[in-house]
Computed example of a mutant assay.
Amino acid sequence: MDPITAVAVAGVALVVKGALETTGQEAGRVGWGGGVRLVERVRARFRGDTEAEGALDQVQQSPGDTAAQEELQRMLLAYMIRDRDFEAEIRQTVDEAVAARGGQGQVNAAVIKNAQVFNEKVEIQGDWNIS
């Protein structure tokens, strides 16, 4: 996965995380306030493009919908490729999210499902059931 695609995947994961926190599905978890800023920035950039706005709205309404996540990722990637300043803003926001977690990213498989994720180190705690 090339770096710009990885940023798009991470950006969508932050949108999903924010949507889950808003709906209470991840209540009790310490949130990172930049997620709201990311969504506002993406919404402002998508303004006027009904297809892109719809993709963002769909993920916010149904954060577990993988097809909606993929569509938002496609839209976000297209906008980042066309506008390198926008890409830099999204990249900075993703970097801030990682820094807010102490420099370590957290993978939530329930959120990202089938997305490719690159990690330096994976640690698993608790019970592990494979079905």
Rank of each mutant, 00 (worst) to 15 (best):
A19S: 02
E123T: 14
G48E: 06
I81Q: 15
R82I: 02
I81T: 12
T23N: 09
N129P: 09
A115Q: 05
A88W: 08
V59L: 04
G31W: 01
E96H: 09
G28D: 08
Q73Y: 01
R101I: 00
V59S: 02
E96Q: 15
A109D: 05
A67Q: 11
Q92C: 07
R29W: 04
D127E: 11
V7K: 11
D49Y: 13
S62R: 07
A67H: 10
G54K: 14
G64N: 10
E89Y: 10
A99K: 11
R45V: 07
A19H: 00
M80K: 05
Q69S: 05
E21C: 02
A10L: 05
D127M: 06
V111H: 04
A19R: 00
F46N: 05
R82N: 15
Q25I: 12
L76P: 03
G18W: 01
R45H: 12
T23L: 03
V9G: 03
A68Y: 03
L76W: 01
E51K: 14
D83Y: 10
Q116Y: 07
F86T: 06
A10S: 15
I124Y: 05
D49I: 14
Q25P: 00
T5A: 11
E96W: 09
A27L: 10
G103K: 13
V42M: 09
R47F: 14
A27G: 14
I112A: 00
A78D: 15
V36E: 01
L76S: 04
G31I: 02
V107F: 12
V30C: 00
A68T: 10
V15M: 00
I4S: 06
Q73I: 05
E21Q: 01
A44Q: 06
Q73S: 08
I112K: 02
G18L: 01
L14V: 04
R84S: 15
M1L: 12
E51A: 15
A88L: 11
E51R: 14
P63H: 03
Q73M: 07
T5V: 04
D95Y: 06
T66I: 13
R84A: 15
V39G: 00
V107E: 04
R37P: 00
D85A: 10
R84D: 13
M75L: 09
Q125L: 06
A115W: 02
N108G: 08
R41P: 03
L20D: 00
V16N: 00
Y79D: 07
I90R: 07
A100G: 09
M1G: 11
R74V: 05
A27C: 13
V7N: 02
V39W: 01
T50L: 14
V9S: 09
I130Y: 11
D65K: 02
W32G: 00
G102D: 11
D2Q: 14
Q25L: 12
W128I: 15
Q60F: 06
N114M: 12
R29N: 07
D49E: 13
K17H: 01
I90C: 13
D83G: 03
D127Q: 10
A52M: 10
W32Q: 03
A99Y: 01
V15I: 08
A110W: 02
V42T: 08
